[in-house]
Design a protein around this nucleic acid. Sequence first.
DNA 1: CGATAGTGGAACATCGATGTTCCACAGCGG
DNA 2: CCGCTGTGGAACATCGATGTTCCACTATCG
Lengths: 188, 188
Amino acid sequence: MDLRTAADTGTKARTRRAILDAAVTVLTADPAASLGDIAAAAGVGRTTVHRYFPERADLTTALQQMGWEHVVQATRRARLTEGTGADGLDRLCQEYFELGNVLMLVFNYSAPDGDVTWDCDPDSQSVLDLITRGHRDGSIDSTLTGPWIRDILWALLYAAWQQSRTGVASRHQALDSCLRALHKVVAP
Amino acid sequence: MDLRTAADTGTKARTRRAILDAAVTVLTADPAASLGDIAAAAGVGRTTVHRYFPERADLTTALQQMGWEHVVQATRRARLTEGTGADGLDRLCQEYFELGNVLMLVFNYSAPDGDVTWDCDPDSQSVLDLITRGHRDGSIDSTLTGPWIRDILWALLYAAWQQSRTGVASRHQALDSCLRALHKVVAP
DNA sequence: CGATAGTGGAACATCGATGTTCCACAGCGG
DNA sequence: CCGCTGTGGAACATCGATGTTCCACTATCG
């Protein structure tokens, strides 16, 4: 017998995923949305939400964890150890941009819930290492500290996503603007 | 007889101001804080808060209005019509940075309450005009649109204030980093 | 001194979100 | 077919925030 039951990849997993996905969408639009709103958006009953996440905190915790897993995977896909530091940063920006709403949620949930800023997560160090490599190979301005560049990256991504979300620019235009701004900032 | 009673500049004005100031501090830290928290931070009773702002919405409206007034005044102080476009943007960044928490509040309250983004306020046009002038006088990269540069400005300010607020950098260092990043982005 | 403005606090009603319980229904495999 | 699993919905209790009312206290000014 398996520790995880067979249903773990079946109906239950799908329902859980639907709730989490809906939560990302709804909570991004309104961080104070009720569980009923989330249930409605997920197309399930409020009871079902409570079945999967007994308390609201359980849901937000799961959301935060899922969000960070996405960020970690995106960081991995960016292959930070290949090419120059600036190249890696470029790929990282593109991967993060693809995360969309998940990114905004992780961004916003860092402060209010717990002060678990993005300093303490496992992949943050690899980003700082990337920047250090960029400092050494001359592709990143050495006068800009690692944490500051990382924060600029997130800030630019936030602004770019706002642009795309509000229809000021298309998704592609927003990403393009973001990448160019990042290039100019980190260039020595 | 005055339309505004004499007390308008006396005790009542001071109490009102204390409540608004406390609200800025508290709501910046936790946007979902209760009126009791705000009253305690202001050093007044919860009843008094209700006397000045009968409903929560009245308080948030007043906050938003006060915030925008500060922004407008800061924009005026930056004397956007003097010097090159880039110079004006530089001064604007410094003035906005000085607004501190008020800035963060205006920034955060743009989306959740009403969709009154910073496009519709009176001073926004003068900022866009400034950028257009920078495009013409060659001090600002013409391939970057006005709205995008304005959003970058806000995003960088947000990131810089986070740095200073979390103690990663001093206030002065944060502003310096912010200004240098802005310079590099807008440079043609 | 006496009136008035401004305030604080207690008490209360209300409302929405939350969390729990229970029951009914549908699908699916043995 | 029967039982199990997953679900939806109704009903209920609870809790915290909100908004209101009322009364007492203090300081200031005429």
